[in-house]
């Protein structure tokens, strides 16, 4: 099927409703107003995730392959790819705690990978902060 509106359109419609209809009507209720602003932000995160996540899954997978000197293929279907990536991350967490990346070159490579992973996550959850931090670094 090629249903319209698509997933992004639907989320956008719900966000637009909250922004243009609900927010003006609840300015007198500070708590509800704040929580609705949070809800709007959550929908913006979801919209960015739909746009960026498929690329991030591929880049993170490729970096882990490079880090561990493997050539594992990323499953084709998106849900399978997410599950396969989650399994790799779980294994990586155990190895980090056990000291498998303590050696200096391994540690630096891991650090570079995780920094990039955090940046990709911030591109989705808070791109403004990422921009501010980059400007601070000059």
């Amino acid at each position: 099927m090629n249903d319209r509106p698509n997933l992004s359109d639907l989320i956008d419609a719900a966000r637009g409703h909250l922004e243009s209809q609900v927010i003006p009507a609840i300015k007198g209720d500070a708590k509800l107003y704040f929580q609705t602003l949070v809800a709007i932000n959550v929908l913006k995160i979801a919209e960015r995730e739909i746009a960026l996540r498929p690329t991030h899954v591929r880049t993170e997978w490729a970096r882990i392959n490079a880090l561990d000197a493997t050539e594992d293929a990323l499953p084709f279907a998106f849900n399978d790819a997410e599950h396969a990536l989650a399994a790799k991350i779980t294994a990586m967490c155990s190895k980090i705690r056990a000291g498998a990346y303590d050696d200096e070159s391994r540690r630096r490579a891991l650090f570079g990978h995780l920094t990039q992973t955090a940046r990709e996550s911030l591109e989705i959850s808070n791109p403004k902060l990422l921009q501010t931090l980059d400007e601070e670094n000059g």
Binding site: A86, I89, T90, M92, C93, I96, R97, G99, Y101, D102, L110, F111, L114, T117, A118
Partner: peptide, 11 residues
């Protein structure tokens, strides 16, 4: 939670 960033920071 499996979070490699915090795992690395704690190590």
């Amino acid at each position: 939670v499996q979070n490699p960033i915090f795992e690395f920071c704690l190590r």
